[in-house]
Amino acid sequence: MKKTLLLSAIALTLSACSNTQTVEQAQQFAPCTFPDTPTVEAPAWICDVMPKDLAAGAMGYAKKSAAGMSVMRPIAINDARVQLASQFQTDVNSMFKQAIESSVNTTTDAGAVENTLETVENITKNVVTRSLSNSKLIVSQVSPAGGLYVLVGMDKQAYQENVNQIVDEVAQNSSLYKQFKSEKAAENLNEALNSLKSM
């Protein structure tokens, strides 16, 4: 009897595992809820589903405060801007890495490329820390628990303007080009940087 029950349980488990979902079913997302009120449905941007007309965006949060919105709003916006800057810096470093490796790697040694990437990452970090211009508050939402959620983002034009600002600062850094032994490698690097401005 125990053997039959055990075999039945194994068979039932195996049949459940072999049940396949369609691609459409697998792609359906669970409804978005407020993190501070998990039983209440929230707008999709609170769950990091960014609107299509933004090139980049980030969600910020401020918990309910007795001081009210005049204190909560700047906290939430600052939280979002910090996250947006971090995301932008990662995106731009990735773009630089691809451009530099594809354009320069064939004409110079790996050490020079690695040093160049480190220099570019430092410049990018400095520029993003100083100013990430034209990011703006897109929308805000108060949760049922009283917390404030905000979406801060950049449209495609603002995003490209920020990329161009970083490209200009990188291109003006003379130590970047000194790492290459040949003039051709430095020229290739310059072309790679300029290609990022026309994306």
Score class of each variant (00 low, 15 high):
85 A>C: 09
46 I>F: 04
125 K>S: 00
52 K>H: 09
188 N>R: 10
81 R>H: 11
120 V>E: 05
37 T>I: 00
131 S>D: 05
74 P>V: 08
26 A>S: 14
99 A>S: 12
181 K>Y: 12
123 I>D: 00
26 A>T: 10
16 A>G: 14
177 Y>H: 10
163 V>S: 03
41 E>I: 15
39 T>V: 14
87 Q>W: 03
60 G>A: 08
91 D>N: 10
139 V>R: 06
120 V>C: 08
14 L>V: 15
24 E>D: 04
95 M>N: 09
90 T>D: 10
68 G>T: 02
123 I>M: 00
55 A>R: 07
130 R>T: 09
58 A>R: 01
117 L>H: 07
114 E>P: 06
43 P>E: 08
96 F>Q: 02
90 T>Q: 11
72 M>K: 11
3 K>E: 11
119 T>G: 04
3 K>R: 11
104 V>P: 04
76 A>W: 05
198 S>W: 01
191 E>Q: 15
146 G>W: 08
153 G>E: 01
120 V>S: 06
53 D>Y: 11
16 A>Y: 10
143 S>Q: 04
93 N>R: 08
112 A>Y: 10
43 P>Y: 05
92 V>P: 03
83 Q>V: 03
74 P>D: 08
144 P>M: 05
55 A>E: 06
77 I>Y: 01
128 V>M: 00
103 S>C: 00
121 E>S: 15
197 K>Q: 12
61 Y>W: 12
56 A>C: 04
182 S>E: 14
197 K>H: 05
77 I>L: 02
92 V>Q: 08
188 N>G: 01
124 T>L: 06
119 T>Y: 05
56 A>M: 13
98 Q>F: 08
173 N>G: 05
131 S>P: 00
128 V>C: 00
139 V>Y: 02
29 F>A: 14
50 M>D: 08
193 L>R: 05
173 N>A: 13
172 Q>E: 13
47 C>N: 07
169 E>S: 03
86 S>W: 02
102 S>H: 03
93 N>W: 05
103 S>W: 00
116 T>R: 03
